[in-house]
Design a protein around this nucleic acid. Sequence first.
DNA 1: GGGCCGGTTGACTACGTTGTCAACGCGCGA
DNA 2: TCGCGCGTTGACAACGTAGTCAACCGGCCC
Lengths: 379, 379
Amino acid sequence: MSIEADLGDADLGAGRTDGRVPVMADVARLAGVSQKTVSRVINEAPHVRDVVRDRVLAAVAELGYRPNAAARALVTQQSRVLGVAMPGSTDYGPSAQVFGIETAAWDLGYSVVVASAPASAEGFARAVARLVAQGVAGLVLNDPYVHHGLSTRALQTLPTVNVGEALCPGTVCAAVTVDQEGGARQAVEHLLSLGHRTVHHLAGPVDQGAAVRRAEGWREALVRAGACVTAPLVGDWSARSGYEQGRRLAGDPDVTAVFAANDQMAVGAMRAFIEAGRDVPADVSVVGFDDAPDSAYQVIPLTTVRQDVAAVSRRAVTALVAAIEGQPWPAASPTSPAFDAHPLGGQHAGSADAFRFPVGLVIRASTGPPGRRPGGPSP
Amino acid sequence: MSIEADLGDADLGAGRTDGRVPVMADVARLAGVSQKTVSRVINEAPHVRDVVRDRVLAAVAELGYRPNAAARALVTQQSRVLGVAMPGSTDYGPSAQVFGIETAAWDLGYSVVVASAPASAEGFARAVARLVAQGVAGLVLNDPYVHHGLSTRALQTLPTVNVGEALCPGTVCAAVTVDQEGGARQAVEHLLSLGHRTVHHLAGPVDQGAAVRRAEGWREALVRAGACVTAPLVGDWSARSGYEQGRRLAGDPDVTAVFAANDQMAVGAMRAFIEAGRDVPADVSVVGFDDAPDSAYQVIPLTTVRQDVAAVSRRAVTALVAAIEGQPWPAASPTSPAFDAHPLGGQHAGSADAFRFPVGLVIRASTGPPGRRPGGPSP
DNA sequence: GGGCCGGTTGACTACGTTGTCAACGCGCGA
DNA sequence: TCGCGCGTTGACAACGTAGTCAACCGGCCC
């Protein structure tokens, strides 16, 4: 393979740079042009004759020249680096987002620096400060962070996009998200259509937009159907929290259907029901949210709401890069070109410049009609 | 909260820099010293009187000055950025590693840029090339990449550390890993001690070090115990592959115990057994590897081998940073100070400079004695 | 009292790139 | 034929920081 050759060239330099890593001046000397012309060729600027261009490119190849990112960033005031602030979690959602952002960014010629910190106000402050200090050209914020003191003034000088729901209405930065309410509604309607009297909810952290929206969708669907709305139990996205809250639900014989705010909590809840001697789905139906890759192959394959995290991440990065390279980020207005592609907004007011991706219910083995009568296992 | 104040100061600058982001010269002017002295204060260099230092620090605070990373990188030829090359996967292992590396790096004042690419030779080449172009100070490689054309010469100019097992003996870069064989042995011995005649293996990709070492440990433990060694089935770490291979195992009534190379495949295998009407653990016992956070709360809580990914990542980053800041990376020798701390090596020759972390078996509900007689469910 | 020495400070420069602007050469129209 | 304009090229400065080295200052010893 070419690795050895590639890196070998890049490292050692086949040309006359006596051990030093080659710079533009070396290329220029070898090609017999000025350093500025090399710069033009490298940046594909106009006004370079083909003959000259070829000579320069040959010299670049011979020396294994690579542009110095630091020098370029210094002079252009542009780092071509995106900062991602995320709560450091190995949950499927966040990590899928990070990888999605990373892939999309590379495709657009940007690299990605990740700053993980607990989703507290201090954690957010430190993460953003690190990213700013590092000189990122734009910021991708994760939902859980957004409510923590993010203000209009604070970030308006730096292009910023939020992946997920913004809780505070004052937030001006653009948001890319999925139709959380719609997904929750689909889950609830599915369960009600199976014959369940109502659906209990295992919610995510109350200060996170995605969790709030899913809870809203759940409540709304119940109200619309005239079903009784019970108080949601709150978890922290982890399977452990799903298990713990699931044990509380398992103690209530009236519970026949549960909608968990993500797949991991749904799995934990299923475990709690099984442990309590209540079968899934015969006694209790469970629905998750995310459709993590594992969910189809759980011991009880999970009915869940599928969202395309990769597509969401891609859109977020695309919008962010457009903002970076286009207008100097005038606090993204609804008329900003970057946000005109799919303005499906209007789901909730005050966030007109949101992308909203559709979601879809995937029905598997964890849901079914309420077979045994509520009140305990049949004799 | 202080976010607004922090970022507000940083962005707008409370001083006399008329909109521009403040630079050292601005601080120097305000403090009445030279730019060089500001540099000394910022870098905590010696030979600065306390009075002067305080004056400079006050000016820094007033202007909200932040060092320009690009300029610093340009002049020091040092980016304080670590590059992480990873296969873009949302599996627990890789994503936990990325977060662990990121956290450890920040603690040491380094930021982390991630390059994800498929674990092929081309993917590896592109990922490393991107990272090098970005100007990283050091490289963290993930196991699956290492066998792809990594050569002594190729990376010897850039400090590099491998997290995981290096397959090719020619690889000189330092490696930090866990005791894969030992973990596999513990899993097998646990199953044999329960009374199983032998243990089948659901392995990871054959070209990945961790998968190979786990398979080696499994085979070794069986041989030592005089049990028969069956051909391992090969998956790709995903629950899906665990399910698919699990179906093949479920068809064989002699199978009473399975050791999967990671938790996700173990879960998929459990699903396959349940689907085939074989109970876990009554008919078949299953052991995983990783102890992912969810594994304790699976519908059938998983017996698995716990490894401390965060600690491994931390060690890798510590070693890498030591190499970056210490000697100019003479292709890490066993006597290199960076690798003297815990040389538990010697597990396999040719890699004397490896850190090897211990692992531990966590026994849960997915394993038990072979209850029903092999040959099918009892009537 | 003069010289020396070490701690402190600043002027100058390099780092590798891009932006600005002037200069050059060629073809074309007057 | 001359002048003009455009496409092409290069000299020079600038970006913000750290390294080098000289200058300065005070106290100390001879």
